[in-house]
Design a protein around this nucleic acid. Structure first.
Length: 286
DNA sequence: ATCCAGGATAGCG
DNA sequence: CGCTATCATGGA
């Protein structure tokens, strides 16, 4: 903290938005509490954010970027109305009110989820911050100092040993191999925007360490494909216990088909609300 | 201590 | 095709 540097903030209208829930819901992992709000990076800019009622206050000059990053243009009330009336999803909606699915930079999102398999949210966060602090670019603004996520070109040149020092275990080889493929131009992440969701998913699954679940996370959190449904252990648990109660051995394949069909064109949102609700209340309810 | 975590993958029948 | 063991690490 430095004195004498006053943060200049800009107000942005943000109806149907909860900053804290959005940042802590397991879709993005590097934001840190700071004063009344959070600090982090949006692409290559250091940003401070805080919520004040129905609006957010953002580092001056970052208002438009923040509105896009937090997808304040998603018609949240309309999206929620498309969901079924069953108590399970309705309770999740109530619990997660204001949670938005954000628009992350593609590489950042892909790379972060490459370090996610068999890790808790808290540890994915620790890995993400370790990579940023060690290999990212130092970004400063007012009293804020954060680090960007290193570009694929840079990650591709990090010795495996140094990635392992960030405590990501067997995931390091996948991050490194994928960084090399992206850096070489063999796959163009930006060009995936022009593909159908199905084709983009197939292209992502070609990358080492990317299966259907991580591909769906990237499509949902970085490509605005709101129908993409990542089915992780939590979503499988919710669907099993709440929608297939009494049935033994429901296959993962069947659960995925159910989620996509039952929740419809915004199934990704439904999934995120269920994830947030159950992850934060599961211990208490048993 | 034992189990689990926003899984992917090779190898098996 | 569908099922299983395995991968490395820290938190519960």
């Amino acid at each position: 903290m430095q004195y004498g540097k006053v943060m200049r903030l800009q107000s942005v209208p943000a109806p149907y938005f909860d900053l804290e829930k959005t940042l802590s819901s397991g879709q993005v992992f590097h934001w840190t509490r700071h004063g009344r709000g959070f600090v982090g990076a949006m692409a290559e800019n250091a940003v401070y954010l805080e919520q004040v009622g129905e609006s957010i206050r953002v580092t001056a000059g970052q208002a438009a970027q923040a509105a896009h990053y937090f997808a304040l243009d998603h018609p949240l009330p309309d999206i929620l109305e498309t969901f079924p009336a069953d108590p399970v999803i309705q309770m999740a909606i109530q619990f997660s009110r204001g949670l938005r699915i954000i628009r992350q930079p593609q590489w950042e999102c892909l790379a972060t989820f490459l370090t996610s398999p068999l890790k808790q949210v808290q540890h994915i966060r620790a890995i993400s911050l370790a990579i940023r602090n060690r290999f990212g670019r130092r970004l400063q603004r007012d009293e804020i100092e954060v680090f960007s996520y290193p570009r694929p070109e840079q990650v591709s040149e990090i010795p495996l040993r140094e990635l392992l020092e960030c405590k990501m275990g067997f995931r390091a080889a996948n991050l490194l191999a994928t960084a090399k493929i992206v850096a070489s131009g063999e796959i163009n992440l930006e060009a995936l925007r022009d593909l159908s969701t199905e084709d983009a998913r197939a292209a992502l699954c070609e990358l080492p360490g990317v299966g259907e679940k991580i591909a769906n996370c990237v499509l949902l959190f970085a490509y605005d494909r709101l129908d993409a449904v990542p089915v992780d252990v939590w979503i499988a648990r919710v669907l099993n216990e709440a929608y297939f109660a009494g049935r033994l051995k429901v296959s993962l394949r069947e659960l995925k088909a159910f989620a996509a069909d039952y929740f419809g064109s915004y199934a990704g949102y439904a999934q995120q609300y269920l994830f947030h609700h159950w992850r934060l209340t599961y211990r208490k309810r048993r």
